[in-house]
Design a protein around this nucleic acid. Structure first.
Lengths: 149, 149
DNA sequence: TGATTTTAGTTCGATTTCGCACTATTTAGT
DNA sequence: ACTAAATAGTGCGAAATCGAACTAAAATCA
């Protein structure tokens, strides 16, 4: 493989990694003490996608190991942002449900990020960012399918 | 702020975060035991940008805390991939220099990723990815400047 | 139907990440 | 020139992340 090709893809992932680092730091600076981006992301996911998901589907959605998700969920439990119930479809499994505190937390977190989103939008208008989304989603989906089982 | 706007930017960062997670896992699966993406990234940076940088500039480049970079560098030292020398311009500081082993490691790591890059390129041709780079670099640069000191 | 294989979530321990605090050095202000 | 403030890198401890191993339940196979 030629070095120019490698450079393009390595640069892409390098930028992605740094933006991920920066956005995580920015988001976490706005969250209440003890709550991190993974906490927010799970709550947001339960609202946007579907409440009552299993730990495994959540771990898969975020591409983290099961144990990482177990840890994240236990943090959410401690803060009373979710509750866990048995999974009626699978005796080994549980389902994760939002509490009112969870919904309130998410609304506050999003609102607290408004200044950051405002600043970002001033420099990168919504349409510009939005036009990247399909390709990013495709890349993410491709890599998700590509990874080892 | 309207929810549609929020959704665009939150979705963008969500995709970024997951792609970062996936690419990190893929890369680390190819690296020798004990070496992680941050190790590779520092070596790659020293080659692509400039050898002999200070821990602080490296931490800034990757948007990680100084202590994280200290830890990463100590791993590189242990593996003999870099060496540290005093910084002639600043008595508090050091400079990080590649060893031959470091250069060899980087070349091997890049080559070992070729199958992954091949697969990715088949689905997302180089030009398509390359056209995203300027905007990603701008977003990264903007967020870098925007963050608290 | 029973045996075998696979799997969901957790425990455990190791590693990585990160904030706080520190020392020695540098920079900025008077 | 001297003092005060800021800073580079590190030690320390806590939290987050992650792989290995495990148990109980589900899925698959004969």
């Amino acid at each position: 493989m030629d070095n120019d090709t490698r450079h393009v893809y390595f640069t892409f992932f390098n930028e992605i990694g740094i933006i991920a680092q920066l956005s995580r730091a920015a988001m976490e600076a706005r969250l209440p003490k003890g709550l991190t981006l993974p906490h927010f992301s799970v709550i947001n996911h339960l609202i946007r996608v579907r409440d009552g998901q299993t730990p495994l589907t959540l771990a898969r959605a975020f591409q983290v190991p099961k144990t990482t998700m177990t840890h994240t969920l236990s943090g959410l439990l401690e803060h009373g942002l979710v509750e866990m119930r048995p999974n009626p479809k699978d005796g080994r499994s549980k389902t994760v449900w939002l509490t009112d505190a969870g919904r309130t937390f998410r609304a506050a977190a999003i609102q607290s990020s408004d200044p950051d989103i405002d600043a970002l939008q001033a420099a990168f208008p919504k349409q510009k960012v939005e036009q990247m989304l399909p390709l990013l989603a495709e890349i993410r989906s491709f890599m998700d399918a590509y990874r080892d089982p």
